[in-house]
Design a binder for these strands. Sequence first.
RNA 1: GGCGCCGUGGCCGAGUGGCUAGGCAAGGGUCUGCAAAACCCUCUACAGCGGUUCGAUUCCGCUCGGCGCCUCCA
Length: 513
Amino acid sequence: MSTFRLYNALTRQVELLEPSEQTDDGAPLLRFYCCGPTVYSYAHIGNFRTFLTADLIVRTAAALGWEVNYVSNVTDVGHLTEDDTADASGEDRMAKALKSKEGEQFANVWDLARHYTDALMADWQALNLREPTIRPRATEHVREQIRAVEALLENGHAYETEDGVYFHVPSFPDYGKLSGNTDIEELAVGAAAESRDVVVDVEKRDPRDFALWKKDDAHLMQWHSPFGWGFPGWHLECSVMAQKYLGETIDLHGGGEDLRFPHHECEIAQAEAITGKPFARHWSHTRFLQVEGKKMSKRDGNFLTLHDLTASVDNGGRSDWGAPVDPLALRLALISGHYGKPFNFTQAALKAAAKNIQRYRDADKAVQEALASNREGENNLEAPLADVYADALAAMCDDLNTPEALAAAYRGVNVILSQHRQEPLSGMAAQTAADFLNRINNLLGIVRHESPEGPSSNEDDEFAEYVESLLEQRTEARKAKDWPRADEIRAEIDALGVEVMDNPSGSTWRKKL
RNA sequence: GGCGCCGUGGCCGAGUGGCUAGGCAAGGGUCUGCAAAACCCUCUACAGCGGUUCGAUUCCGCUCGGCGCCUCCA
């Protein structure tokens, strides 16, 4: 039953994802590497769509009883902003960020990288993303990268020039097997470089050759190497770190669709030229998302970081996007489309997600209460919830069909709530429902936060206290049938962004969506 | 130009050779001091044109339209 099918970019078809090893306990062990971001700024929701895809792979594997060695890096070395990336010249992104307005607060590039790395981890947790087994940093693996360059020089796949060390693409006949960019492309590449008026290292032997090491003793981040002071090429860090932590051949390698070429193609070339073994057996890419029908861009005002959406307006959150948005709603919105298809992120979709999350919370709350009261009675949830969970897992195993998995999960929530409405859940039924919600949360991460400290704070507690006190006053007024006074207080509460709901059993409140 | 993806009801988005995905929005209703929430009901679509077929939204071809990558980008 434990078959997990996933699109493989290498073969261009949906294939069985097969761990090549087992743990000592006999569980399949998946070795998975997903390319992380360069920490020169806050990560945006597009970055997170990719990390979310990785997260869902990890969760689905875990649901099947697999162990996952999940490695996701942080690129804290500045690479390049200019078109001549292959030559690794030009200004790097970190240096550029340091000079920007936001960059003024940082003492240096190291400081800047640390700040944005911390921000990444906080956002990561807010979105309920599972922490990678290992999160290596490029700057902490420069030794290994230098050794890889040496190995490639020794076995003839690389050569040194005045400016750096390059990988010689023609020495690796498989180059292009992932992207389909083969020899025809070669001409286009040369042409492209010329038309862009880029200064190409004249010593490069082939236009496709890419930098393994860039000699530059003026660079803000530089290391000493046998080839002089400088810094490693961008593609090197991932293949080196993946192999260090996961072995020479890994089961699955993922990232954003833009990474397919040249980044992943170059990783393959470097890694396989050294080991002579396949680097990764399965490749997965997440498609870019669009925002309100357009590619995200700062100019169009639709460039969204997690911070833009989840921070309070006072704290820089974007009111035009309804900030602060519940991070779980954002998570749900971002996984409501298939990872391999273009996805249009819209305000309407975000609102719909928020509403659904509310419902998951309602169910969770009802179940917790029922669990506490432990009523006598039948358990008629077992069979329906088992079916629904099986549907959800099967959908995820079918190339991560999140829309279908979510539909199934929601069906389960509705079963629980409608059952509970007819007659409060028995202790046994509540236990079944709680197990279901836990499993759904493990699989999809949309029921509640998993991190020990949820995003709650003293501020929230104080706010809640204040609302409760107002609500008490209103209840008094209602008892006295002083309707104008009651409505007045409700208006006050309403102004705080809170809605009041009067039920037969009393009044409750919650933050408006 | 090269490679690839997609066009589903007001919106977002699965899926299938014949049997209502789902969500959100909207309209009507129940409930309610008024609201809100909740619940019930309604809304049957697959870009266009051909072809294959007993039958196509689903397969094939063409047309139109949108989008992505092709050394900045997840």
